[in-house]
Design a protein around this nucleic acid. Structure first.
Length: 880
RNA sequence: GGGAUCGUAGCUCAGCUGGGAUGAGCGUUCGCCUCACACGCGAGAGGUCACGGGUUCGAGCCCCGUCGGUCCCACCA
């Protein structure tokens, strides 16, 4: 083994081996329990970023853990066609070649898109593999493959037949750049500095004006009314009167509507039903005309009179100028308001009235609410349920049609002759009503999320009744970011309940965002993104994975920094070197299972610690507390195994005693293998590499050929060495105390000093005796003697106190007495403080009557220890 | 406007359904190239757990309020 762990080359080699051996592949097997995760399909346009890396790592940890636990674990992979993102990308590419999308035509465009998908769509998959993701690649799917298309059509037709999907003219969010509708979820509201223009319209039949304010003067071209609150005394007599819309010279009514807030501005609102969602509602109530003044690209259309052809912002300025000239502009105020923008391209959304397809949400959402409320689906962390309900409680119908080509085409057909609308799973060439063959399919495609919503069952073969579907559905856990809860999670939930009659997953495990070291979101525009592939290249996938998972609680954002990556890399190196040490001592030896009596105190201690760690790690992983479990593994390996156990065992490895050496080697190996297994889900590569090296070197046929198919460790009663664990902990405490003294007294490590252990308790002396071989080495003692009293201890010996024992070293000649006094005084102070705390608890009547008995006992024992230790330290102090 | 979440060591964060902050990593100080590892070892320093109340025998943890940061949602023109 090399001196330093170098992941380069190793990772790809191991990954290929796993794929070749089909370890990732899951088949239906009724004799085993299934455990299923479906991957949140990354976009085919995407390149792996830290968010993916975190998401994939969490899933891989869980799936590897479950696989090792004996579940039939399926991690279903695939990619998303990402309708709009991909279409924009290809359109841009064409533009660079001087080709206009519309001139190219739909069919040719789609050919191009599929080619593109073939060429680049796989890139992200290759990047997932770099992370070590143990997906079942034999089952890879694509949201626009044939099966998914079938599922989409099936769902569309079913919901249409049930009246859950309808077509209608409603006000929708229009992106003038992408030239398509988008759903409410895709609108991102952003504060924008703008103005509030105060304008007045003449009241017909009077010389008076009606003043109001607007943030969008250009929409006045489509105004069809002025509204006031019916309760507003100021305007009561104006209701029913008419005002003149300047520029357009259109007479419009003054209507009364509750929507108007009397407190805001002048209490008067211009109404543009064609370009504002609220005005649209007001318009419906008052039967107002809807005038669309805009073309799809955001320029003013022929309904805008002389402003036709101008861009919406150009028109705004021109209109304000004209109003000013007419003397109708009262004033302009600075004003910041929330503007809806398209989350993809950041263009300001234009509300427009258009014929679109919608999913009716009110009934559909009910099981999705109930499912989470009643615990059929668990959200981790639970607090996100509030966010979830906030959305479900305020849900509006989902606009699903998109004016795009790359996507699932809406399976609706219209007869050009009689206008009949047919929704069908198969192509329709003949009108079922009039028999005409002049049928045209709806040109629109579906929102990307429509197909993603079906992902947990479409990937398992639905609508066919496949064995996979029966066996692997519902899936067990969905791992995703909280930012996608509205887009995807909720839609999968209601789709699962509606189509399958069952939840799509039992648990949703959310993670947060990966931010840069300053806490900023990683983004292209800021240029602060860290490329996971670069990190993997430099430090290895294991280091990246471990960094992303440690110290992070579900749903919390995390900061990424190279300091943390280095810490993880160092951890991998630590294990590597510990293994190197173990291997060195194992080579050429035959390791036998030791007789129970041959196991020494240190062995029992580490086995017991290992056993407890196994339990704690398993418990936390089962709760999806992956960060906590990772921390436990880290501490166990680094602190307990490397820093203590290996040091404890060194003297025995050098000694001649065969049985003792064998027990040490056996324990070293057993604990190492167990620790590697615990760590394997987190750091699959190093653990596999070391595991295989050790298996080969020791020719151990009992070990499976790969750690990833070995059994996850289970808590085992036979390692319940509680008493020995406690004994060794006490010895450790003594070691630390003595080291502390030596360090503060500047005693060089080479200088050996004999230690006398004094305790009136036989079992305490025995505990030290049992640990003597390593104790001696760890505290640089030549001899250790044991006695029940302090007979023969020189007055100026340096002392260390631990519960129930004191340790003495004849250091006097090189110790500054005043310094030793200071040290003991500090110790007195500390112990007095402890005693005080303990006393205040134990003298509290209420504590004694209300606290649990075990707690009281524990406190009493502590108190008695402090008392004894304090007495001892004080005595020493007096002797100096 | 509503909601969520965070405020613990110089920095980044853990802290298990309330029971001594021996918290972790990084940084820092002192001593060590000890035959696995200097990507390391040993020993330290460093915290009024944002603030103010309350519940409790006991609060970093529960409740109320205040301040500060972040995020989500929302039709105030």
């Amino acid at each position: 083994m090399e001196k330093n762990y170098d992941p380069k080359g190793m990772e790809d080699r191991l990954y290929s081996k796993w794929v070749e051996k089909k370890y990732f592949h899951a088949e239906v097997d009724e004799s085993k329990k299934p455990f299923t995760i479906v991957i949140p399909p990354p976009n085919i346009t995407g390149r792996l970023h830290m968010g993916h890396a975190l998401d994939e790592t969490m899933q891989d940890i869980i799936i590897r853990f479950k696989r090792m636990q004996g579940y039939n674990a399926l991690w279903q992979p695939g990619t998303d066609h990402a309708s709009i993102a991909t279409e924009v990308r290809i359109t841009d590419e064409l533009k660079k070649e001087g080709i206009d999308k519309h001139e190219l035509g739909r069919e040719k465009f789609l050919e191009r898109a599929w080619e593109w998908k073939k060429e680049y769509g796989g890139a992200i998959v290759g990047q997932l593999k770099k992370l070590g993701s143990s997906c079942d690649w034999d089952r890879e799917r694509f949201t626009m493959d044939e099966g998914c298309n079938k599922a989409v059509k099936e769902v569309f037709c079913r919901m249409y037949d049930k009246g859950l999907i309808y077509k209608g003219a409603k006000i929708i969010n229009w992106c003038p750049v992408c030239l398509t509708t988008i759903s409410d979820a895709e609108v991102e509201y952003k504060d924008q500095a703008s103005h509030l223009w105060h304008i007045k319209y003449p009241i017909i039949g009077t010389d008076d004006f009606l003043e109001f304010a607007t943030t969008r003067p250009e929409t006045m071209l489509g105004d069809t009314a002025i509204a006031v609150n019916p309760e507003d005394e100021r305007y009561k007599d104006l209701i029913g009167k008419k005002v003149m819309l300047p520029i357009m010279n259109r007479e419009m009514p003054v209507v009364a509507d509750d929507y108007v807030d009397m407190e805001f501005g002048t209490g008067v609102v211009k109404i543009t039903p064609g370009h504002d969602p609220n005005d649209f509602e007001v318009g419906k109530r008052h039967d107002l005309e809807i005038i669309n003044i805009m073309n799809d690209d955001g320029t003013i259309n022929e309904n805008g009179g002389k402003y036709a052809g101008m861009d919406r912002y150009e028109a705004r300025e021109a209109i304000v100028k004209e109003l000013d000239e007419m003397g109708l502009l009262v004033k302009i105020e600075d004003y910041t308001h929330n503007v809806g923008t398209h989350d993809r391209c950041k263009t300001t959304i234009e509300p427009l009235v258009k014929q679109q397809w919608f999913v009716k949400m009110d009934e559909l959402i009910k099981p999705a609410v109930k499912g989470v409320k009643e615990g059929d689906i668990t959200l981790v962390p639970a607090s996100l349920a509030k966010t979830y309900f906030n959305w479900t409680d305020n849900i509006r119908d989902w606009c699903i049609s998109r004016q795009l080509w790359w996507g699932h085409r809406i399976p609706a057909y219209t007869c050009k002759d009689c206008g009949e609308l047919v929704v069908s799973r198969t192509d329709v060439d003949k009108c079922p009503k009039c028999g005409s063959t002049n049928m045209v399919q709806d040109p629109d495609t579906l929102d990307t999320w429509f197909s993603s919503a079906l992902w947990p069952f479409s990937t398992l073969g639905w609508p066919e009744d496949t064995p996979e579907l029966k066996y692997f559905y519902p899936t067990d856990v969905l791992v995703t970011g909280y930012d996608i809860i509205f887009f995807w999670v909720i839609r999968m939930v209601f789709s699962g309940y509606e189509q399958m009659g069952k939840r799509p997953f039992k648990t949703v495990l959310f993670h947060g965002l990966v931010r840069d070291e300053k806490g900023r979101k990683m983004s292209k525009s800021l240029g602060n993104g860290i490329d996971p592939l670069e990190v993997i290249e430099k430090y290895g996938a294991d280091a990246l994975r471990f960094t992303l998972i440690t110290g992070n609680a579900p749903g919390n954002d995390m900061r990424f920094s190279y300091d943390r990556i280095e810490a993880s890399r160092n951890f991998a190196n630590k294990i590597w070197n510990a293994s190197r040490f173990v291997l060195m001592n194992l080579e050429g030896k035959t390791i036998k299972e030791p007789a129970e009596n041959d196991l020494e105190a240190a062995d029992r201690w580490i086995l017991s610690r290992m056993n407890n760690t196994v339990r704690e790690v398993t418990e936390n992983m089962e709760k999806y507390e992956l960060g906590i479990a990772a921390g436990k593994i880290y501490d166990f390996i680094w602190d307990e195994y490397c820093d203590w156990y290996i040091e404890m065992v060194k003297p025995r490895l050098r000694a001649e005693n065969e049985a003792a050496g064998n027990a040490a080697r056996f324990t070293l190996k057993t604990v190492l293998i167990t620790a590697l297994k615990l760590l394997h889900p987190y750091m699959p590569f190093v653990t596999e590499e070391i595991y295989c090296i050790i298996k080969d070197a020791t020719k151990d046929d009992k070990l499976p050929e790969s750690i990833m198919i070995s059994d996850f460790p289970v808590y085992d009663e036979k390692y319940g060495y509680a008493a020995e664990e406690k004994d060794v902990e006490l010895v450790k405490e003594a070691v630390k105390g003595i080291r502390n003294v030596r360090s503060t007294m500047n005693v060089s490590p080479g200088r050996k000093a004999d230690v006398t252990v004094v305790s009136e308790k036989e079992d305490i002396l025995n505990a030290f005796k049992a640990s003597e071989d390593f104790f001696k080495v760890l505290v640089s003692a030549a001899e250790v003697t044991y006695q029940k009293d302090k007979a023969g201890i020189p007055d100026d010996a340096v002392s260390v106190v631990v519960p129930n024992a004191a340790l003495y070293m004849p250091f006097a000649e090189l110790v500054d007495i005043s310094e030793e006094k200071a040290r003991l005084e500090k110790e007195v102070k500390r112990l007095e403080g402890e005693l005080k705390r303990s006393d205040s608890m134990l003298s509290n009547e209420k504590f004694l009557s209300k606290a649990p008995a075990a707690k009281i006992e524990e406190e009493k024992e502590k108190r008695s220890n402090y008392e004894k230790m304090l007495k001892e330290v004080k005595e020493r102090l007096e002797l100096l």
